[in-house]
Amino acid sequence: MRDGHYWIAENKGSLLAFVLFLVMFSFYVSHHPAGLNADVATTAANKGVLLALVAMAQTFVVITAGIDLSVGMVFVLANCLASSIVVGSPLESMVGVAGVLVAGLACGALNGALVIYGRLQPIVATLATGAIYFGLALWLRPVPGGDVNSDLADMLTDQLPGGIPAVLAVLAAVVLLVWIPFRRSLLGRTAYAIGSSEQAAFMSGLPLGRAKFLAYALSGLLASIGGLMLTFLTYSGEASAMIGGTYTLNSIAAVVLGGVSLFGGAGSAIGAIFGALVLRTIGDLLFVFDFDPLWQPLFQGVILLAAVSLGSFRLLRMRNRLDLFG
């Protein structure tokens, strides 16, 4: 039973995000004119899955106490690449999908190499590589356009038999095939250890370099899966600095809402998924309640500030003022 308590304490942030999402989503559905049916769920899932994937990508790096400011640009680059190469026969499309994923992995690996072997600060290194990835995206797609294998796109963005949105299956597959194995592996645990205390992890003889490198590489991979899904949803590619910037910033907000500590070492990608869904549902709620759309950005900002300020209640429990400075 002690294990249960420990599990709850460890996953408090993820659970909180999950509950918050459930409450907000049921509120949304109960006020939606059509109620909960497969179509409403599919639309909501399609809107949420992109940010969920990018937020998961961000989680890998944030756990090691780093930050990846290029996730949004990898997302855009994958979108532009997919709109050029995921076309033609089923076989060609599959090769194209693989190409997009490899490109994402390569982007992440470059980030990792610069941070670990180049010893650059993650913030500035990923800022600069973000400019490079955006340059590549613009080079691939100077004007919005392109195409994508529509059979594959429809299959992945429609419903499975039984009315379950297919994108949720994609999300579940990513969690099962990427996140869970990572979390349970030595390198995954090392990533958490680095976030808690890099010195202690080093003294324990953990493979710091490889763990960080894997975290950055997987971050690139997940961001490119997000870009791929964007292409399936829009049937086109667009190199937009605004989309990239928005997704990068929202991914940070989503991981924080999902209970991942920006100081590293705590939180999970599952929490980040729900953090992303919460962020998306805020927008939907405003829509259902017929808010003036002009007020929407302000409302989202205020909610974000309020949500992150809630963590300040821990200050009331502090006995020693020195604890403030961690």
Binding site: I67, L249, I252, A253, V256, L262, F263, L294, W295, Q296, P297, L298, F299, Q300, G301, V302, L304, L305, V308, S309, G311, S312, L315, L324
Partner: peptide, 23 residues
Amino acid sequence: YLRVPSMIFTLGMNAVAQGLMVI
């Protein structure tokens, strides 16, 4: 005073300032 990491708090303030200007 609230000890929120600056990266996320200033990000939120950016959104609030944007919201104010949009209105």
